[in-house]
């Protein structure tokens, strides 16, 4: 008993003990600096957000009024724009998956088939993704402008003049216009990921398919597509998670307008917290975003893990 005690004490007070301690805890100690930053800049703000979501406050007042779950009931029962923003997130995720993935896969197969020009083509469609999204948003804002923009000029030139309209200045088309820009940016990424996956497939599979007499379309349907299944699942989940953190493009292009028709949860959060000076309500929105994305990330991890171990 006494020996045991002295051993524990000696651990801290003799150099040898200290060294043993350092040795045994090396992993933890090496992770410590990163951990400190994670706690300071991730976990602490997160806890603060949960805490703030229970208050009514205006950033500068000394009085924070505890309101319980009022912010949450207001959000789900009285805040039409919040519900609309949730719908817009779902639409954004849905259309991203439905449009970007098929086009990305198609482009990837084309690029891999015509390798000589494919490389250049690939670089061009990937370019929007590496440009700053604020710059992209500003460019597209002007392109959609009904007086100076090139989108309407193009539509008229190809005989689709009846489609010409003030894209961002119409509550029925603003969201569609934003989706157009989103797809323009991210199709390059989807294509790139598909190309990388397809390249990792041994060419012998395709060769034997050809020897067995499969047509191009059959080859795509029976071999390429099944091999891309996992990638597609991952892409869908990335699209969903991405929709929840989507902000800059919409804020620059429409600020959630016209008439609140293009808000997503993050822009509505920003408007509540920093425009209307209601950090409590903004935090409450943040909490819901956190919970939704947390669930999705859990699904993502579970899905990919079960696939990998199978």
């Amino acid at each position: 008993m006494r020996e045991k005690n002295s051993l524990v004490v000696s651990k801290f007070f003799t150099l040898k003990g200290l060294r043993e301690l350092l040795d045994s805890q090396a992993g933890f100690l090496m992770a410590l600096p990163a951990l400190v930053f994670a706690v300071l800049f991730v976990f602490y703000p997160l806890a603060q957000m949960f805490y703030l979501s229970l208050f009514r406050w205006n950033f500068v007042s000394p009085n924070m009024v505890f309101v319980g779950l009022d912010n949450f009931t207001r959000m789900f029962l009285n805040d039409q724009v919040y519900l609309r923003s949730l719908l817009n997130v779902i639409l954004l995720a849905g259309q991203s998956s439905a449009i970007q993935i098929p086009i990305g896969v198609a482009l990837a197969t084309i690029i891999l088939r015509y390798r000589r020009v494919g490389g250049l083509f690939w670089a061009i469609i990937f370019l929007p993704y590496v440009v700053s999204s604020v710059a992209v948003s500003l460019i597209w804002t002007w392109m959609y402008n009904p007086y100076f923009g090139s989108v309407n000029v193009f539509l008229r030139a190809v005989g689709l003049g009846f489609l010409a309209r003030p894209w961002l200045g119409d509550i029925n088309t603003a969201l569609i216009a934003i989706f157009g820009t989103v797809n323009w940016i991210y199709i390059g990424l989807t294509t790139t990921m598909t190309i990388a996956t397809l390249r990792s497939i041994p060419p012998s599979i395709f060769e034997s398919a050809r020897i067995d007499g499969l047509s191009g379309f059959q080859e795509f349907r029976k071999i390429t597509l099944p091999l891309l299944k996992e990638l597609i699942v991952v892409l869908v989940i990335i699209d969903i998670a991405g929709a929840f953190k989507f902000f800059d493009l919409i804020w620059v292009m429409t600020q959630g307008g016209p008439s609140d028709s293009t808000h997503v949860t993050t822009t509505w959060l920003y408007r509540a917290a920093f425009r209307a000076s209601e950090p409590g309500y903004g935090s409450a929105i943040g909490v819901t975003v956190f919970i939704f994305s947390f669930v999705i990330v859990q699904l993502l991890i579970k899905f990919t893990r079960s696939r990998l171990t199978r």
């Binding site: 804002t141 002007w142 402008n145 009904p146 007086y147 100076f148 309209r165 003030p166 894209w167 961002l168 200045g169 119409d170 509550i171 603003a174 429409t254 307008g257 016209p258 008439s259």
Partner: peptide
């Protein structure tokens, strides 16, 4: 102007400055 509800200050400025 057409689509004014979605137009920015800069876009309005352009319309006025360029005589539209």
């Amino acid at each position: 102007q057409e689509g004014f509800i979605g137009a920015s200050y800069d876009e309005a400025q352009s319309l006025f400055f360029t005589g539209k």
